[in-house]
């Protein structure tokens, strides 16, 4: 188990879920994967199928249309799977929080289907790639705690 967990810390495959963002956060995420930041150094790779994902990078305020899809995607991912709420929209709803179509934010949508989900919040509008890397580092620290508790 612990061998697998240390493997997980060194190899986080991320799947990008855009839940009605303004696309600015998505651009920052793509920025994270470019040669300048090169997160493959830490084993972070963008994968094309949610079954391979260890982390969902969710951006946007989650409107009514997209909420069931986000929940479905989370259920389809192979556990353990961490959810990253990237951007103020995903964290809190930002200036869309009183919007008529608001169904999120991300943590509420996810916790409806899995109350024990691990959710990492990366605020910012949009957050810098450095902020996202710092979020990942904190998530890894959380995994360490998980191991210590067991």
């Amino acid at each position: 188990m612990s061998l697998g967990l240390s493997g997980l810390k060194k190899s986080i495959w991320v799947y990008h879920v855009a839940c009605s963002p303004c696309n600015n956060c998505d651009i920052e995420i793509l920025d994270l994967l470019t040669p300048r930041f090169d997160v493959e150094r830490f084993g972070i790779v963008l994968v094309g199928s949610v079954r391979h994902a260890d982390a969902l990078l969710v951006t946007g305020m989650v409107n009514r249309q997209v909420k069931p899809r986000l929940q479905e995607l989370y259920l389809q991912a192979a556990k353990p799977c961490v959810v990253f709420a990237i951007g103020s929209c995903a964290v809190s709803g930002n200036f869309f929080r009183r919007s008529y179509n608001m169904a999120g934010p991300v943590d509420r949508a996810i916790k409806e289907v899995d109350p024990n989900a691990i959710i990492v919040y990366v605020p910012g509008c949009p957050p810098k790639p450095e902020a996202m890397i710092s979020g990942v580092v904190k998530a890894i620290g959380f995994l360490d705690n998980l191991k210590a508790k067991k």
Partner: peptide, 23 residues
């Protein structure tokens, strides 16, 4: 023009995949 992963990267990938669930 990137740095690239460390040498144990693929071992970590496989070790991680072993603890994931198989739906």
């Amino acid at each position: 023009w990137r740095k690239g992963p460390p040498w144990y990267q693929n071992f970590a990938d496989v070790a991680k995949l072993l603890i994931k669930e198989v739906p």
